[in-house]
Design a protein around this nucleic acid. Structure first.
Lengths: 106, 106
DNA sequence: AAGATATGAAACCATAAGGTATCACGATTA
DNA sequence: TAATCGTGATACCTTATGGTTTCATATCTT
């Protein structure tokens, strides 16, 4: 199975990994830079980065001896698609919520 | 901590639980009815239903000796909110995707 | 009342997941 | 070239997770 659609969902299930994604919104970061922001070893952070990469939510590239991690927003597409299955419900019951979320989109 | 925002993410991380949510789009279902659709014991399905309930994604009510499980679309709000953090990226890079998803919303 | 049915809860098991420490190695710098 | 730096990989540990079986209990049904 090359097409593992559940990997993005799994990647998003951990708070540390969601925090990493938010950090990468602002700028790409090396493994060490990401690690500085957490109270755990670099090896542990590296594992989270691997899960994020497997889920397609980040991309990585080598820069000298460093490895740069970059957000890959397209990786969220499977999640958005799946949430789309509930659009009918939103139309019925969550109009207010939808408009609130879309207001954030500016 | 009463406000466990990560519980919806955790609930969505399992394929069985996502499948249950899709089933509940169509109609409310008892525990036994949900279980019929999976190749696992009723007890295992019950555990998934508990996780979904803890995450706020379903609500349950007793009807005689049965317990009816109903989709709670509002439970997806934390997930939508979180995904909203990436709207700026979508505006920049994912306009096509966004419009495709919104087309599904009809 | 007795039996069947639907559920809930508990004990248990195997594997996955998140963490650590340690070592190896390529790239940089003194 | 030698030391250091950033990373990757492995072994290992503990707890969480997803599953099972079994039993108790409340509610229907006859």
């Amino acid at each position: 199975m090359t097409h593992q659609e559940h990997l993005p969902f799994r990647a998003l299930s951990d708070p540390t990994r969601r925090a990493i994604l938010l950090m990468l919104r602002d700028h790409d970061m090396t493994v060490a830079q990401v690690s500085e922001n957490f109270d755990m070893t670099r090896a542990a952070v590296k594992k989270h980065l691997t899960v994020l990469s497997d889920g397609g939510l980040i991309t990585t590239s080598k820069r000298g001896r460093e490895r740069v991690n970059a957000l890959n927003p397209q990786g969220l597409a499977p999640v958005l698609d799946w949430l789309g299955f509930f659009d009918a419900f939103w139309d019925d019951r969550l109009t207010a919520l939808k408009s609130a979320v879309e207001k954030d989109m500016q």
